[in-house]
Design a protein around this nucleic acid. Sequence first.
RNA 1: GGCCCCGUCGUCUAGCCUGGUCCAGGACACAUCCCUUUCACGGAUGUGACAUGGGUUCGAAUCCCAUCGGGGUCACCA
Length: 592
Amino acid sequence: MALSHITRFAPSPTGHLHIGGARTALFCWAFAKRYGGKFLLRIEDTDAARSSEESARGIMEDLAWLGIDWDEGPVLKYETSGNTAAPQARPTRTIGGDPRGVGPFFQAQRLAKYNDAIMRLVELGRAYPAFETSEELEAQRRVVVAAKQTYRYDRASYNKVPDIAERIRRMNAGEPHVVRFYAPHEPIVVVDQVLGDVKTAAGELDDFVIRKQDGLPTYHFAVVCDDEAMGVTHVLRAQEHLANTPRHVALQKALGFRTPNYAHMPLIFNVDGTKMSKRDKAKFARKSLKDAIAKNGPDFIASVVAATHVDEKSLKDFLAAENDSLDTAEKIAAHLKIALPEIEVADFRSSGYLPEAILCYVALLGWNPGLKLADGKDREKFTMTEIGEHFTVDRIGKTNSKFDRAKLLAFNADYVAQLPDDQFAQRWWAWCIEEKDSAEDVRTLVSKFTDASHAASPAKPIAAFALLATAVKPRAKTFRDAVKSSKFALLTDDLQIDPAAREKNLNANNQQGLTLLREFLPLLQSQKPWHAHELHALMEQFVKDKSLPNPGPIAQALRVALTGTSVSPGMGETLELIGRESVLARISRVVG
RNA sequence: GGCCCCGUCGUCUAGCCUGGUCCAGGACACAUCCCUUUCACGGAUGUGACAUGGGUUCGAAUCCCAUCGGGGUCACCA
């Protein structure tokens, strides 16, 4: 039975999965789900120099983390850390496979198929070897562009070697060459499901390269062959590919292939209108460093060199934008304690975002189901399953959008708030384990809350962690936020007290804070059950007995004494988590 | 520059196809107020857009044209 809806996501393994790629993959996945079709993953590794296996693996893991499973494609055995949308349901899973026998799914493993097709075209005279070097062509191009003309390859090799047998002979003789497609002189119409009919006039196409000198096919040729071989019926991809599509259609005609349905989706940019790219990290680090130097003086560079172990020359080159080294950027960020902008899925993961929030936010960039809530407001929170149920191509917009981190953050905060406390605790812990090696405060938290009696990996948290999670969840927009709010629970008894807080909450009003603390201390000393609920009740009673207008004076005094700051979760939770012994010690220390 | 695509609040968008119910609705952000033991959360209110100019029509955000603006693409990258 031929499936009527087969989509594919076809990344090239030259880095991590970009957030825009995640959206493309989600749309392809959702489209297949919506029509009961299949979603397949194919790795486009025809750029031998830039492709890597680690990158392919990384992209697959990013997809798996998001929960975008492919029905067909490379096999990935994925062990979840628990920090995924449905950790209990699938601690380990195997994604991919080849039930229809259309693989392999790495293009580098399909060269024989491409070469067969290429030879067919050469024998038909629809493709031909070209012997110019890229330097020669580059020189020609420069001349033409300088004259403000449109450069097109002049078909010189085709004309010089008109005989097909002679072309094949020279190809087989091992003469360096590329293979070019003989572009038809006719108008081409791309029927796009989002944009409508896009017409290309006759003569617009030039004889583009379909096989590079290294013997690998170009992207254009490989996609066309693979989409046909894999029975892809619908191609959903970013609009940057629109201009390529006439080439693909022409190739399909020449090869006698079917033309799939196309849907080109709008692009995603930064808020300032620039392209979202890895470079943004370097740019941001550079700007931050420059600001820091402006503030601290030119000698600051020396301290950065010392701290980051980036040599001075590299650092100066980086500052002068001579290079965009990601490594340097990350070291600078670590030293300056700044967060680089998230660009790739992995960045958002390590910043503590929830995959379901990312997916929902990104889905709404260029797509909208137009659904209303019961109160008439627009609906914009969807589970992945719902996206799959409602997804249709005609609801994809045409206009490019800007990636607004503030809104993503708000989405994430909502998804965090919706998480039941136990799930939040479980997933937050899993995230902490993932991140503990790259952030000091996370490491401290993990070591403080790891249950030593379960020393075996994976590490389990002690019972108090659940209380911490509950206390911290309402004010956490991300997992990283949750760690920040947990700082109060990681202090030692000799903590530093913020002078302003001391002044305001302990010393002011004739030392009202200190006085109240002195009076409250004995009550705490005799308090038996050390639980948030009882401790809270104890404080409330104290407020009543002292006829305080509100709990502020005592609560804030406690906060300052216990945490050194005027900010912490509710007093009951704060007292329980800090623990009886430390509470008493810290108050005594302040009270003197 | 050639070719192509797009143009509703600062941002994401609903509405546009099937003109009137839109002096344009929601969300994020921002501002003010309320709630409050801090920080958050929550609640209320507010500021804020149909790019411009022409048509067509009794009537246009919705249809047509032009202008302007933004973007993509022009590789032996994908």
